[in-house]
Amino acid sequence: MLSDVFRVILLIGVLIYLLIIMFLMRKGKMNLKYSLVWLLTGVVMLVCAAFPGVVHLVAKLFGVYSDVNIVFFVGVCFLLVIILSLTSIVSLLSDRLRSLTQTQAILEKRVRELEHKIEGKDSEES
């Protein structure tokens, strides 16, 4: 079973963690879309701290000696999912940024050439 000291530390840690997420969301510094997986991680950790019986059961089912290893394992799994999703978000963002840069540059050329044309006409007229 998880030791009481560990449960208290876990509980305090998760509560601080959830508060930080709420704070970031209130400040508009984290999109709801990206916060869901973080919140889910927090809830699962909260369950681990509140109901050590569940952790014990899972540990027994998986044949894991120490209950605390299940907590670590679940945490690592969530981290992997979050990091993977971050990489995919960054890839999408860089694709979009590149496409936007290219569109802007092609438009800039059109505008520049149009300006030259107009300037040329103006100087002819005057």
């Binding site: 590149r98 840069t101 290219q102 540059a105 092609i106 800039e108 050329k109």
Partner: peptide, 25 residues
Amino acid sequence: FHYINLPINLGIGGGMQTGYRYAYD
């Protein structure tokens, strides 16, 4: 000269792609 100015350095890949987009358009 005829030129396109990229506002951010995209590297050779992104640069060439700009050219292909321009050519296609």
